[in-house]
Design a protein around this nucleic acid. Structure first.
Length: 358
DNA sequence: TATTCGTGGGT
DNA sequence: TACCCAAGAAT
């Protein structure tokens, strides 16, 4: 009978975690965390910010780079924002890098170099929202707190067969996660559920036969596993089009421009382009008169909320003009914070013009 | 409350 | 190909 279905418990998944926890650079292994040892708050904070909407595989190298260059929060606070942005380039969501730097300075200036050890205290720092505050409090300070990320939402939706669609069901999912949170080892519990979601209770084709909670999983009992969590359909993302202008001068330097500090790709370097216009009508108004040459093909880039299509035109122009940008030699592109969109444009140009800028 | 923030990998 | 999704936060 269904009445004998066991309730899922933190004990069950903590035992699983003790045997199967992933070894991650920022994580205290369960053999030690079980004894009340906690990972360095600086490491936990840095990793959690990087992990916001970003996969473990992607974050790994960035985490190592940052830690090698700035071993302590004081080192990061002493760095220039530009250095931080350059190291961050490619990770995306660049507001995180600005807030990271701002937060490091606040921790050093206002907290003596120590992170607040409570959820409420952490929540006041820039770039630390509900999830990250709870994660640091639990993982680095042993507080009883319940971070809820996408993994944990999915696991809870299945465990309790929550059929209401996200994001409306988020509060319900969180209440389930909170109810299961143990007073002791809350950090390990959260990391255990996240590991479970990442390796077993995956979005598609979960391997329920390996799941420590399989006996108590309502979605499994009702055959709903693959269909949960449900989600309200999202609006289609609009297409925008523009022309990017690849400008070179006689010595081969290229004109790049820094985007405004806030908003899309804030503070990142770009190949100057006209306004990103609605689909059918876009104007081609080159920034300077020159012998513009249209490169074949398009540079396409999808953001979360819009699809961008760039035509690229190239020309050699008078090296005395700057148009509010900076002349940069191709060899020095690596020293600058180039988001993927910019790198795509560079790659596109190289494919059609080659290094002899012509 | 709803948008606006990147990017890479999987299917 | 097109879509989904990933240790979310700020506005």
């Amino acid at each position: 009978m269904f009445l004998t279905m066991p309730d899922p418990s933190a004990t069950t998944i903590l035992e699983w975690y003790d045997r199967h926890a992933r070894r991650l650079p920022w994580r205290m292994p369960p053999s030690r965390s079980r004894r009340g040892e906690y990972a360095d708050p600086y490491h936990v904070w840095l990793s959690e910010v990087m992990l916001q909407q970003t996969t473990v595989v992607t974050v790994g190298p960035y985490f190592r780079k940052f830690l090698a260059r700035w071993p302590r929060v004081e080192d990061l606070a002493a760095a220039d924002l530009d250095q931080v942005l350059t190291e961050w380039a490619g990770l995306g969501y660049y507001a995180r890098a600005r807030n990271l730097h701002k937060c490091a300075r606040l921790v050093c200036d206002d907290h003596g170099g120590r992170f607040p050890d409570t959820e409420v205290g952490l929540r006041e720092l820039p770039g630390i929202g509900p999830y990250t505050a709870a994660a640091i409090a639990a993982i680095a300070f042993g507080r009883t707190a319940t971070p809820v990320d996408g993994n944990i939402e999915r696991v809870m939706a299945r465990l309790f067969a929550v059929e209401a669609p996200m994001p409306d069901s988020k509060p319900v999912l969180k209440s389930h996660a909170v109810r299961l949170t143990p007073d002791d080892r809350a950090g390990d519990y959260a990391q255990a559920v996240m590991d479970l979601g990442a390796t077993i209770c995956t979005p598609r084709a979960p391997t329920c036969s390996l799941c420590p909670w399989q006996a108590g999983c309502r979605a499994r009992a009702e055959g709903l596993t693959e269909t949960l969590p449900r989600r309200t359909p999202k609006a289609p993302r609009p297409v925008r089009r523009a022309v990017a202008y690849w400008m070179t001068r006689r010595d081969g330097h290229v004109l790049l421009r820094r985007r405004p500090e806030t908003g899309l790709l804030g503070g990142m370097m770009e190949v100057p382009s006209g306004p990103w216009a609605e689909t059918p009508d876009f104007r081609d108004v080159p920034p300077v008169a020159a012998d513009w040459r249209l490169l074949p093909g398009l540079v396409e880039h999808g953001f979360t909320h819009l699809q961008l299509e760039l035509q690229v035109k190239a020309a050699r122009i008078d090296g005395r003009t700057t148009l509010g940008g900076v002349w940069i030699p191709l060899e020095a592109f690596g020293d600058h914070a180039l988001p993927t969109l910019t790198r795509k444009v560079v790659r596109h140009v190289m494919a059609h013009l080659g290094k002899g800028t012509r």
